[in-house]
Simulated scan of single mutants.
Amino acid sequence: MGRDELLDRPIWHAFTTRQAALAEQAEGALRLRGEYGIFASAADTAPDSLAALAALVPAEGELAVIQAEDHPPIPGVVMTPQPGICQMVAGELRPLPPPDFEVVDLDDGDAPEMLELATLTRPGPFFSRTHQLGDFVGVKAGGRLIAMAGERMRLPGLTEVSAVCTHPDHRGKGYAAALMGIVAGRIATRGETPFLHVYGHNTGAIALYEHLGYRTRRQMRMWLLSRA
């Protein structure tokens, strides 16, 4: 399977391969377990697959679908379109000087602060075990986590950079670029290609990512799914 085919449907290809153990599987559909996130996907557009996806939508709360192409209606499900998403893939990563601040690896002991920072800054859906989707690094000040970046979806040969965020009181110090560089460098060292998703209206973030060596591959579509 080619890279473009994988990236056009990243949820399906991440959670049926490298991260399959983290998903609830049904015949023709899947959803990421709730403590990790809200992603879901059908295998294809066959009626049985759409029905299987509908059965995974919780009575309370939402799931999220991200893919390149339009999605057919799902019987019994409300599909709420979200702002367009730009999918970017790393080309030649820009070399960055070593940071002049300490960067630490984050683990389960940091989970409450990671969730607190993500809730404050809203880099994307983040739940109690989202940090276990991949490796995370961060910056602390006064013993408190003030910036972080990490990994989310892992596809064959590809890993998504995600949860890039900085506390509002500590922005403008180069934390995001430095942390992204470290995360992407580790991904590349494993022989994989970093990629990411960003809302198309977030022009500031897109400019930063382009500066770091990412290029837009294509525009993606996103829907939130809820019970009708």
Results as ranks from 00 to 15, higher is better:
Arg9Phe: 05
Pro97Thr: 05
Asp110Cys: 07
Val161Ile: 12
Gly204Trp: 03
Gly213Ile: 05
Arg18Ile: 04
Lys173Thr: 03
Val137Trp: 14
Pro123Tyr: 04
Leu196Arg: 02
Ala147Phe: 08
Gly174Ser: 07
Phe15Ser: 02
Asp105Gln: 11
Gly157Asn: 05
Ala20Gly: 12
Glu92Gln: 14
Lys140Thr: 12
Tyr214Trp: 13
Arg122Lys: 15
Trp223Cys: 00
Pro73His: 06
Met114Thr: 01
Gly109Ala: 11
Gly185Ser: 05
Gly181Ile: 04
Ile85Trp: 11
Gly61Tyr: 10
Ala68Gln: 14
Arg144Phe: 05
Met148Pro: 03
Met153Lys: 08
Gln132Cys: 13
Leu133Arg: 03
Leu120Gln: 13
Gln19His: 10
Gln132Gly: 10
Asp107Gln: 02
Pro81Ala: 12
Ala176Met: 07
Asp107Arg: 05
Leu179Glu: 03
Arg227Phe: 02
Ile38Glu: 12
Glu24His: 06
Leu7Arg: 10
Gly2Ile: 03
Arg221Tyr: 01
Ala40Met: 02
Cys165Phe: 11
Gly204Val: 09
Thr119Ala: 12
Glu151Phe: 02
Leu53Ser: 06
Arg31Glu: 01
Phe101Lys: 10
Thr216Gln: 14
His197Thr: 07
Leu6Pro: 12
Pro72Ile: 15
Met180Glu: 14
Ile66Met: 14
Arg217Gln: 12
Met222Thr: 13
Thr16Cys: 09
Met153Gln: 11
Gln19Asp: 10
Asp108Ser: 15
Ala20Arg: 15
Ile66Asn: 07
Glu160Arg: 03
His211Lys: 15
Pro95Cys: 04
Ala54Thr: 07
Gly37Arg: 10
Met114Ile: 07
Ala21Asn: 09
Pro97His: 01
Pro95Leu: 02
Leu133Pro: 00
Phe136Asn: 11
Met180Asp: 12
Ala176Arg: 01
Ile74Glu: 07
Val77Ile: 14
Pro95Thr: 02
Ile85Ser: 00
Gly91Phe: 10
Ala14Ile: 05
Lys173His: 15
Leu225Cys: 02
Cys165Arg: 09
Pro194Arg: 02
Ala46Asp: 14
Thr80Gln: 15
Thr121Phe: 10
Ala42Tyr: 00
Met220Arg: 00
Gly213Lys: 05
Ala14His: 09
Ile206Glu: 12
Gly157Val: 01
Glu116Phe: 02
Pro168Leu: 03
Leu22Phe: 12
Gly200His: 12
Gly138Ile: 04
Phe101Gln: 09
Pro73Cys: 04
Gly213Ala: 08
Glu160Val: 00
Phe15Val: 08
Leu96Gln: 15
Val198Ala: 10
Val77Pro: 07
Gly150Arg: 03
Leu63Gly: 02
Pro72Arg: 06
Thr216His: 08
Met79Arg: 09
Ser128Ile: 06
Glu92Asp: 14
Cys165Gln: 05
Phe101Pro: 11
Lys140Pro: 00
Tyr36Trp: 11
Glu116Thr: 10
Arg227His: 11
Asp8Glu: 13
Gly150Asn: 05
Ala23Gly: 09
Glu113Asn: 08
Val57Asp: 00
Met148Phe: 05
Gly181Ala: 09
Lys173Ser: 12
Leu32Lys: 06
Thr159Ser: 13
Leu224Ala: 11
